[in-house]
Simulated assay, not measured.
Amino acid sequence: MSDPYASPLRGQAVKLEGKIIGRGNAGYKFGSDLQLQDHTGIIYLHYTLRFGPVGNFLFGWTQAENQIGAQVTVVGWFRRGMAPWVDLIVMDTNRGWSVNSYHRFWTLTLGVGAIALGFVFPSLF
């Protein structure tokens, strides 16, 4: 948390080990984001499935509950804003299951889409 270069725009690569203690949004049954606890504290894990919001909904509905209580190793990008979080890349569990997240893919896709819309939108008027 004391690293001044960890910002919402420029994250720091991290590898954390700990236990999944719950969902990112407590009580939201369809949420795909999780919370990790390690020896230093609790951090929010931001998860994005390849299929976008529909995939996140399905993961939260069917598989996120199964991850609670698992010992995990997480690789991702630590970001710091109003609250710290990790944009998840890979999460390996002690149960032999691996979860891949595609946050960078969706960030790039939405950015390119916004630029394309910026070129198309003015020509409509």
Rank of each mutant, 00 (worst) to 15 (best):
Y28K: 15
S7V: 04
N66A: 13
D87A: 05
V90N: 12
G11F: 04
G27L: 01
D33R: 00
I68T: 04
W77R: 08
W85D: 11
Q35C: 13
R50A: 11
S7C: 03
G18R: 05
L117E: 10
W97C: 15
R50W: 08
A70F: 13
L58K: 08
Q37A: 04
L49M: 12
W106L: 10
V75T: 14
L36S: 06
N66Q: 14
L16W: 02
L117F: 14
G76I: 04
G18E: 10
D87S: 08
Y5K: 01
P53D: 08
L45T: 10
Y28S: 08
Y28F: 06
T48S: 07
P84F: 00
G41A: 02
A64Q: 04
L110K: 14
G111L: 12
L45P: 10
H46C: 09
F105C: 07
L108K: 14
L34C: 03
F57C: 04
F121V: 15
N66P: 03
V112H: 05
V120I: 14
F51E: 14
L124C: 02
W61L: 12
E65G: 07
G118Y: 02
V14D: 00
F105K: 09
G60M: 01
V54F: 07
G118F: 06
V90K: 14
I115K: 03
G41I: 02
S123F: 01
N25M: 11
M1S: 10
E17H: 06
F119R: 12
Y28I: 08
G11Q: 01
L88M: 09
L108M: 15
M91D: 07
F59A: 09
N66F: 07
G81R: 01
G81C: 02
N66D: 14
L9K: 11
Y5D: 08
N66T: 13
I89D: 10
I42F: 02
V112Q: 03
A70S: 15
Y44A: 06
L88D: 03
N100W: 12
I42R: 13
I20L: 13
M1H: 10
G52Q: 07
F105N: 10
M82S: 12
T40N: 06
I20M: 03
N94Q: 10
V120K: 15
R80G: 02
F119D: 13
D33E: 00
N56C: 04
S2I: 02
P4L: 02
W97Y: 15
S32F: 12
Q12E: 05
G111H: 06
H39Q: 09
G27V: 01
I89C: 01
S123L: 05
W61Y: 06
E65A: 09
V90F: 12
Y44W: 08
T107N: 07
L124S: 07
H39D: 12
S101P: 00
L45H: 09
Y47N: 15
T48Y: 02
F78M: 10
W97F: 15
A26C: 00
F59R: 04
L9E: 13
L124R: 05
R79N: 00
V99G: 11
A6W: 06
G31N: 09
A6L: 05
L58C: 07
R50K: 11
R10H: 07
R104T: 07
W106K: 05
I42T: 13
A70M: 15
N100K: 15
N66E: 13
W61N: 09
V120H: 13
G52D: 11
Q35P: 05
